[in-house]
Amino acid sequence: MPEISVTVNGVEHREEVEPRLLLVHLLRERLRLTGTHVGCDTSQCGACTVVLDGKSVKSCTMLAVQADGSELLTIEGLGKDGLHPVQQGFWDQHGLQCGYCTPGMIMAAYQLLQDDADPSEEAIRHGLRGNLCRCTGYQNIVRAVQQAARATS
């Protein structure tokens, strides 16, 4: 079995993995970082979104071995020192209900704001189109991201 090394939320992990192991299962089942969720098997829902080397990726579409040598940020690492403004935005604006899409949505929004610090509503809606939420109708998610943008700019 190949051995890989990944840095997750600042901590380096060396793991022997089966070549077919998905990155999301490495995170959830090996590293026990269960904040990253799985909502589909066709890479449509975005519940598994994490940030890998400065890009948001769907961790269900990647093999763990493909992440060898990468830096990963997951929901557990985002608010290490108090809530991140994106998390705060989701809380303040009631941007979640069941919370299942939320970690992926927050990570996608985080990366969206890294790439565009002051997005329009349209840009936010477009930027989050890879992430499904069945509960909120997205309106409060948009507000959450807008709040976070104001807070960070």
Binding site: T74, E76, L83, Q87, G99
Partner: peptide, 18 residues
């Protein structure tokens, strides 16, 4: 503001598969 949110926005929620 919802009291269930702090755990859910930080990845500390606990769903069955967790």
């Amino acid at each position: 503001k919802r009291r269930e949110d702090p755990r859910l926005i930080t990845g500390q929620g606990s769903y069955v598969d967790d």
